[in-house]
Design a protein around this nucleic acid. Sequence first.
RNA 1: UGUCCGAUGGUGUAACGGCAGCACUGCAGAUUUUGGUUCUGUAAGUCCAGGUUCGAAUCCUGGUCGGACAACCA
Length: 572
Amino acid sequence: MSDKGKSEDSSHTSLNFIEEIIESDISNNKNDGRIHTRFPPEPNGYLHIGHAKSICLNFGIAERYNGKCNLRFDDTNPTTESTEYVDSIKEDVGWLGFDWEGREYYASDYFDKLYDYAVYLIKKGKAYVCEMSMEDIANNRGTPTRPGKESPWRNSSVEENLELFTKMREGEFPNGSKVLRAKIDMASPNMHLRDPVLYRIMHTSHHRTAGKWCIYPMYDWAHGQSDYIERITHSVCTLEFEVHRPLYDWFLDALDIFENRPRQIEFARLNLTYTVMSKRKLLELVSSKIVSGWDDPRMPTISGLRRRGYTPASIRMFSEKVGVAKRENIIDMALLEHCCREDLNKIASRAMVVMNPVKLIINNYPDDTTEEVAGKVNPEDPETMMRIIPFTKTLYIERDDFMEDPPKKFFRLSPGKEVRLKYAYIIKCESVVKDPETGEITEIHCTYDPDSRSGQDRSNKKVKGTIQWVSIEHAVKAEARLYDRLFLKENPSDVEEGKDFKDNINPESLKIVECYGEPSINDFKTGSKVQFERNGYYVVDKDSTEERLVFNRTVTLRDSWAKVLKNMEKKA
RNA sequence: UGUCCGAUGGUGUAACGGCAGCACUGCAGAUUUUGGUUCUGUAAGUCCAGGUUCGAAUCCUGGUCGGACAACCA
């Protein structure tokens, strides 16, 4: 199956509001029926699952309507941006399965054009150089309910403005001394129309243009014009830019652009329970070392999810299922996990691994015999291969799979009860050995039924439970990193006075344990997806070495027994 | 007390004036050599008040609640 950005849901009938706009534009032959979107990240941080929604949306639209989608780096602020981020963003978009077909653009590619557009505005008397300090500009801007005051430089002549703006570009003025502003309306109820800043002076080297510029355009000035230059038809962004739209359109008007005008459309960004999504907070988690880095498997970053074991297909499926609308939303993490399990169930190899071992001895099994039993690598795959598992007298089983005094619905092993060792024999528990000091069970003694071997069962026995096991002699030791949600609260930012989101960190978001796997786990390589049977999905981490495998738990299997236990606790 | 935006089960999302549907979650059951998967069933919703209409989640008016906006960030 292709792993490229195909729409997972081909039955997809009802349209979201953006698709409705697009279909209406197509039927009106707007822009000659062309559809062209863009994904415009600022290279100042790593991409997260919220960006993934936007990526899937923009590239998905292009794919569905035979259009194109550009990758454009919105790199207008050299103080925070770097090529490290550019590289990670390209890797992530590609990994998700989308192809920008060489249309890798940068707002900084357009600095010359943007400069010319600014000169055009000045000549039309629609922009001016303002010499107020940053504080004064802020103070004179007014408030949402009170109009602002006009700048004393607002009515400078075109010639003066042209001269000053030229000198700004030539580096004659220090940082912060002057800005270029659009001349709109200081009394507008929309704050963004109160003579917004177009250019500021920053004597800073840029990751692409190096020392060429000492003035840099602001987002509002750069974004819409970049859209126009790239012949973008539908400029999709998040809700907080809704109030910017009048300015977006004002610039297009002021530049006398009437053909092929891009249209800005806003949708509600993705929020997820039990995590944070703002770049500021994610950066804080990284720099305070709460997590190991941007790609820590607990991070909602694309690189974190990748390292956690999520697949591109699962993230694309998720993006499709969360929908697109304008209302604020917070998606249940369970939906992401559902999408993850759905994909992994189909593609992950299976292996038996014991996390918390207890020794099990089969009293009537010969001492020096090793039998080879077989299991399907992936029972969901009709063309699956078989794997060989060595079976001996002395095994590890999961401590949780034995109870000395079990409740009624316990289908696993307990004294006098029978259970199947998966792929092997039915065994019966005869006795247990305990540590005299602690009372902890150290050995479970069983007998097996030689007629009950899997695939050739003549025993006629029916057992309720099947458990995983591993031959101690053949067990492969490995490290398992058991990840859980990073935060204890659905909304980590919901805190009382004086606390912040970091106070809601889940102290048990990572547990590291030693585990014992069947020999086949040695075949896995970094990035391999595997289901530890009856336990969960895991991925081989890049920290693995020749000697020692490291597995990250992606997500547990659904566990209805855990629910039963929980409900019993509640009743008790 | 400004402008803009929004409000449908627990969570998301459909409906384009005509039977409120789908998914996740929950619950119950069937199947199962993974208490997984799969399958079946089930519970749960139109913010409020008026109006228009034969008929309103949908249109109108007024409220209520929530969000965005006062970086030389994006």
